[in-house]
Design a protein around this nucleic acid. Structure first.
Lengths: 338, 338
DNA sequence: TTGAAAGCGCTAACAA
DNA sequence: TTGTTAGCGCTTTCAA
């Protein structure tokens, strides 16, 4: 390898490795580096991993890359990791427990140093096991009931509060929440935040019904909206669980001949790409997805830097600020609407 | 490890490895497998890679995951790879040559078995080098001039032809192409296909101007459209280079008080997610992105199965069929429009 | 059919 | 400051 530099391979290793390069004289170091350059030498990471038990690789588990929510998260993760010479092993789980476990084990078998996991399912035996095994994990967009792992999420409660306040300020008094499923932590959090915000605005539960769909999908949003309007025809505004559901809300409205925003105002959640290009352009809560991923990656790197803490520090969580983006899907309540 | 099974580790290795398990008696094999199960044994992939020089990992280079075009491609790749116990190392290059090279080398250093590369830039020294080095590579969504590597792409020419035919059948005779940059192979291919299709419809070059933006972006589409309409105010239909550019076209139209589709019809390319939820719902060419990725992964796996072919077989390319999806952004040319 | 032994490329402890 | 040596966990000859 670097016998071109006429030194022992151990010395070469030391010279090439930043952490130990101070143990070697400046001149030899220079010579070794030159030789390495000439030979186009690239260290064999498999051998290094084998020796050091570190792979500089982290497993990233996300439900589905084609859900517009996740690409920015993944980019945030990738950008931060690769800046630190780590690599991301990305896997889609489809929110399916079997698949998730299979992927988790496949990645663990590849000696990843840690995991970034972005699932909002509430029950999660896998996480319990990982915790018991001491695997470094950072959660994105959810937290577990027991604070096992550090997590990063958008400030859902604040986002929902902003939405409700916005609608109230436009004169709405019959505001419904068409939310995500209660099997997801975000479904719960946002529904609860909606309850709280409604009470804060002195609206009765009767004025502010909550329906939870069976998934964060357009279809679920559409179905739930039909049910909502059957039961509460006087609704003038809808807070959707996310933008995809908002799309379903819009579709249901259209099917019933209701116009948005003239008859019913709609607020989404996430500010997914092209939310501004929809018809009507969607008023929604912007969540900093890229930063979510970036911050999660930073926390994981921190975690990996620490020498395997014997007693795990109380897992800290980071709540990133959100912002209400007002576009065309919300308007003052019309007199006719009542 | 599997001294629980009371055999030598070599025997255990043979038993656990499907390729060599026929060398071991059925009974011992069973015993070993049982023991492995009990201990929750997972082979150390680093050690295996070190020994076999194969990592069962492939590097995937894409420009930008947040471009809606790429998530389905990435999923197609991931799904096929993981079904074969391979893992994808995903990296974003931002179409930046420096970054691309850095990522490529980082991945190569991690002993990836091959690459799937999805860039449409035409000049590409990196690829030449990879070819010279004999690295297995499959290209997605582009081909190089010299057929170095196998590739998978949508049938761009057919897609453009379908678009033009559709517009002609609606009575349009002044059809422009607002295309991607000529530094990209797709920019070239689609522009050429547009020329061909126009001639096929017996339209003169004057009736079918071509403008190429400086990127496949909304902004580039908007700028090019303004320039187009300054020079060819009689245009009644526009073929955009892709959906993002079509979005820019729509924006420019709106800025000029032109309605789509009443005044100007617009056709996109790709059928990206939510193209149907835009205002107006976009008529566009559907490209099977998931299949693009899946097929690329299959080809790469094939390649890796073959014992490093001394003289590389002539790289074959696969053209996947596309489909025109007619929605609301195209309409019959209006008498008033002329 | 199984055991013994060597070695993949690197790093870390120890010795010089 | 540098060289020596051992060994990470696996696969793979070769011999029994």
């Amino acid at each position: 390898v670097a016998e071109l530099a006429e030194v022992h391979k151990a010395t070469a290793s030391r010279a090439l490795n930043p952490a130990s390069s101070h143990l070697v004289s400046a001149t030899t170091a220079r010579r070794v580096k030159l030789a390495a350059e000439q030979l186009g030498f690239a260290p064999n990471s498999a051998a290094r991993s084998l020796r050091t038990n570190r792979s500089f690789t982290v497993g990233v588990l996300i439900p589905d890359l084609t859900n517009p929510l996740f690409p920015p998260v993944a980019r945030g993760i990738e950008d931060v990791l690769s800046a630190h010479d780590f690599t991301a092993l990305l896997s889609n789980t489809d929110n399916d427990e079997t698949k998730e476990r299979a992927r988790f084990e496949a990645l663990a078998g590849r000696q990843v140093d840690g995991f970034i996991i972005a699932t909002a399912r509430r029950r999660h035996p896998l996480l319990e096991e990982a915790y018991a095994a001491g695997t470094p994990v950072v959660l994105v967009n959810r937290c577990t009931e027991r604070r096992m792992f550090p997590w990063v999420a958008g400030d859902d409660a604040r986002g929902v509060a902003l939405s409700v306040e916005h609608l109230v300020s436009l004169g709405h008094r019959s505001i419904a929440h068409v939310g995500g499923p209660s099997t997801m932590s975000t479904g719960i959090t946002r529904a609860r935040a909606f309850r709280d915000a409604s009470e804060g605005a002195e609206l009765t539960p009767e004025q502010t019904p909550v329906l939870q769909g069976d998934g964060y999908t357009t279809d679920a949003g559409e179905r739930a909206t039909h049910e909502l309007l059957d039961r509460y025809p006087g609704t003038t505004a809808i807070c959707a669980g996310n933008d995809l559901m908002a799309l379903g809300v819009l579709r249901a409205l259209r099917a019933r001949g209701l116009r948005c925003p003239q008859d019913v105002s709609v607020v989404g959640f996430n500010d997914m790409p092209f939310a501004d290009a929809l018809a009507p352009a969607l008023t929604t809560v912007r969540v900093p997805h890229f930063d979510l991923g970036a911050e999660a990656a930073r926390i994981l790197l921190d975690l990996l830097d620490q020498p395997a803490g014997p007693e795990p520090a109380p897992a800290r969580g980071v709540l990133l600020p959100v912002e209400l983006i007002v576009r065309e899907s919300t308007a003052k309540v019309s007199a006719a609407g009542l």
